[in-house]
């Protein structure tokens, strides 16, 4: 079966999974999940440009599908913990489907505007520009005033080169390729520029948020240790 789908259509992995199941007119069950597992994996393979943070979400579900399919093929490899996580996935999907239906209802309600409550001081009043008040003489007068106004020239100063977070991120990433664990002081060791230290720190927080690195610090003002995720 050929599925013409792209990532933009989906809110996330659950949405994709649900669509795959519904396209085949299946119910949400372990059997149908193992049936659509291949299509799901194929989809991820074909969408090379899924952004990193989204990709994680898609892969998390992909790994669950692979286990599920493996167990469907080799039933003797059963394990209570895995079975529980499969049941969890089913419940999650069923709930998700329910929420999608509820979302549709809310959407309808919003669009049909049979009922809305207004504030006493409604911000939704639309102020319209009274076009009749704009006359040619008024525009000329305003323009004349603006053009004759003396404008102080902007002072010209040379801007210092500021490190950009993107560059810093790349630099840290390169650093991570050589070393799996290092100290913050090593990273900024060569510089005395305050702004560069701040940018390095921001870049680090960004990487930590994206799950690329772990950061730890024993006490306040102590050394910060940076570890590559997964070591």
């Amino acid at each position: 079966m050929n599925l013409q789908i792209s990532l933009q259509q989906f809110q996330g992995p659950l949405d994709l999974l649900l669509t795959l199941i519904q396209k085949q007119e299946l119910d949400i069950s372990k059997i149908s999940l193992s049936q659509v597992a291949d299509q799901y994996l194929k989809f991820i393979n074909e969408n090379k440009h899924i952004p990193f943070n989204k990709l994680l979400d898609f892969l998390a579900i992909a790994s669950q599908l692979i286990i599920l399919k493996t167990r469907a093929l080799l039933p003797y490899l059963s394990d209570d913990a895995e079975e529980e996580s499969e049941d969890n996935l089913i419940i999650k999907l069923q709930n998700y489907q329910l929420y999608l239906n509820l979302a549709k209802k809310l959407q309808n309600r919003l669009e049909n505007q049979q009922s809305i409550s207004f504030s006493r001081l409604s911000k939704s009043i639309n102020f319209r520009l009274d076009e009749s008040s704009i006359t040619l003489p008024l525009l000329q007068k305003t323009a004349a005033r603006l053009l004759t106004q003396k404008v102080k020239p902007m002072p010209i100063t040379a801007l210092k080169k500021i490190f950009n977070i993107q560059e810093k991120l790349k630099q840290i990433n390169d650093y991570l390729k050589q070393k799996e664990k290092f100290l913050f002081s090593e990273l900024v060791g060569r510089t005395s520029s305050k702004i560069e230290i701040i940018i390095s720190f921001l870049a680090l927080l960004e990487l930590s948020k994206a799950g690329v690195v772990f950061i730890s610090q024993k006490e306040m003002f102590e050394e910060i240790t940076i570890m590559k995720h997964g070591t």
């Binding site: 809110q11 996330g12 659950l14 949405d15 943070n53 989204k54 979400d57 579900i61 999650k92 998700y96």
Partner: peptide, 10 residues
């Protein structure tokens, strides 16, 4: 975190 658990996305 709870919202992400339900929606399956960040």
């Amino acid at each position: 975190a709870e919202l992400e658990e339900i929606r399956g996305v960040n």
